[in-house]
């Protein structure tokens, strides 16, 4: 009795496993938006204008300079 119940439960679990899958549409590759088409939300960095490519590029360029310690503390001459 217990074995048959267990077997039934396993079969039900196996059959129901696919119920957790999300539907997927067989479509082609989707087009992506440009990075400067800003994401909405509180986490968007300040200092640039959404939708403006030049503004975004300047923002990325300035942000990259945060990785350059020589702009923060100039190198001593050798």
């Amino acid at each position: 009795m217990r074995a048959s119940t267990m077997a039934a439960l396993i079969v039900v679990a196996a059959l129901a496993a696919a119920c957790g899958e999300k539907p997927q549409t067989a479509s082609g590759r989707k087009a992506d938006a440009q990075a400067w088409d800003a994401a909405k939300g509180a986490y968007v960095a300040q200092g640039w204008k959404a939708g403006d490519q030049a503004s975004w590029e300047e923002q990325i360029h300035n942000r990259a300079q945060n990785q350059n310690e020589y702009t923060r503390a100039p190198a001593t001459g050798k």
């Binding site: 938006a33 990075a35 400067w36 088409d37 800003a38 994401a39 909405k40 939300g41 986490y43 968007v44 960095a45 200092g47 640039w48 975004w56 923002q59 990325i60 942000r63 990259a64 990785q67």
Partner: peptide, 20 residues
Amino acid sequence: NGSAAENEKYGRNRLSEGKL
């Protein structure tokens, strides 16, 4: 950009937030 669907599949889109 920045949607819940994007976040779930690929994670955060920092470039579109003006970050690296």
